[in-house]
């Protein structure tokens, strides 16, 4: 038997990624090296290395099923990982000391539908050592001040997801991880939310926001482009436009995918050829 048989299959290739394209001098809020997550035999994330700059908005973009949520869960520390290191705010992901400083808003709004808006936010405030006044302030900040007494179940979809956001904001996190926060919202609300995110970043909060709508990439300082569990690239929106030679971010992403696919085919062909030569000798 050849010793090559017991070696794990190499992960598919991925594009080399610059450490922090949006500001190399800035400090890093979170850093991922060689992250792999396998579910059963299927790789969900294949060898991802990336960094998330502090006090900026990092967009995590890619089609559904590309591993965005798994990546976010790994950062928050609730995902079992197969290999790699995930460092968040200078500590390993999931470190108990991080629980005060990392806010996580899941894709499905995870709040109590049978509690009022304020009671929901108050509970999460108390978990972080805050009080009802803190909760009240955050409820107003997300634009639900007039609905504080209403049961969450009676809210519209967009309002409901803002309760979920408020529950994360009330802990005053240093890193805020948001899984598709703008999905299903009307354009006005979307713009409002993005400006809210921008002002949070300006105050020093690090944000990681996932979306499968490429237009939203323009709101981010730095982009992580995922596809099929692989990191295609980490770059700024400007770099993406430049590299793909178009102002349309959707088209730019498509071109990047095509280029990566072409690369992968080329590498595979080269590898098959190399293996063939080895077997012959």
């Amino acid at each position: 038997m050849s010793h090559r048989a017991i070696m794990p299959a190499p992960d598919p290739p991925f594009a080399p990624v610059p450490a922090d394209p949006s500001g190399t001098s800035g400090s890093v809020g979170a850093c991922v090296e060689g992250l792999r997550v396998h579910r059963g035999k299927n790789p969900v994330l294949a060898n991802i290395s990336a960094s998330i700059p502090e006090g900026r908005i990092t967009g995590l973009l890619g089609p559904s099923g590309s591993g965005k949520t798994t990546f976010m869960r790994a950062l928050v520390g609730v995902q079992k990982i197969t290999a790699g290191t995930v460092t968040v705010l200078g500590r390993p992901a999931g470190d108990p000391r991080n629980r005060h400083d990392v806010g996580y808003v899941t894709q499905a709004a995870s709040v109590y539908p049978d509690l009022s808006v304020l009671d929901n936010v108050s509970y999460f405030a108390s978990v972080h050592g805050g009080n009802r006044e803190d909760a009240s302030a955050v409820v107003t900040a997300v634009g639900l001040g007039g609905l504080a007494k209403r049961k969450a179940a009676k809210l519209s979809g967009g309002q409901f997801s803002r309760v979920s956001l408020a529950c994360a904001l009330v802990g005053k996190p240093k890193l805020l991880v948001l899984d598709e926060p703008t999905v299903g919202l009307d354009p006005v609300l979307r713009v409002e939310l993005w400006s809210q995110f921008a002002s949070m970043a300006a105050e020093g909060t690090t944000l990681l926001i996932s979306s499968h709508v490429m237009e939203e990439a323009g709101h981010c300082d730095s982009l992580l482009l995922l596809r099929g569990g692989m990191l295609l690239a980490q770059l700024t929106p400007a770099q993406l436009r430049e590299r793909s030679d178009t102002d349309d971010l959707e088209l730019a992403f498509l071109r990047l995918i095509r280029a990566a696919e072409a690369d992968a085919v080329g590498t595979k062909a080269a590898r098959t050829k190399a293996d063939g030569t080895k077997a012959d000798s």
């Binding site: 609730v78 990392v102 899941t106 995870s110 109590y112 978990v127």
Partner: peptide
């Protein structure tokens, strides 16, 4: 199943 448990377990609770 509502996700609130997972969320709570990411907090200091």
């Amino acid at each position: 199943i509502s996700g609130t448990l997972e969320r709570l377990l990411t907090t200091p609770l």
